[in-house]
Amino acid sequence: MSNLLVPGAFHWLVVSSLLFSIGVYGLLTRRNAVGVLMSVELSLNSAALNFVLLNRFFAPGKVDGAIMALFIVTVAAAEAVVGMAIFVALYRQRKSVDVNRMNMMSG
């Protein structure tokens, strides 16, 4: 097998940024507010992946990257909780979670 195909850091990073970009696409595209947050989770997840893989390639004996990923997961969880609470409250008021309809700050 050629050296080029063996996944080095470059390949890993490409995958991680691909996932991130897809997450950004979803963030900018989804109409449902929950869908938007799901895309955000995707992006966050790819960021955590980034930490872990870079940790492995550059500092194999250490665990700092894993700890970072841990924190990312935790914070993502907190963020998702609060976001969902807000959407639930918003749905109660407006009967809709359509992002396009939430434009009171226009002009």
Partner: peptide, 18 residues
């Protein structure tokens, strides 16, 4: 975004072997 990142990565010196 993706293209930019990839270009940046390709210019950097990254470890090849795990």
């Amino acid at each position: 975004l993706f293209a930019f990142s990839v270009v940046m990565f390709s210019w950097s010196e990254l470890p090849v072997l795990l």
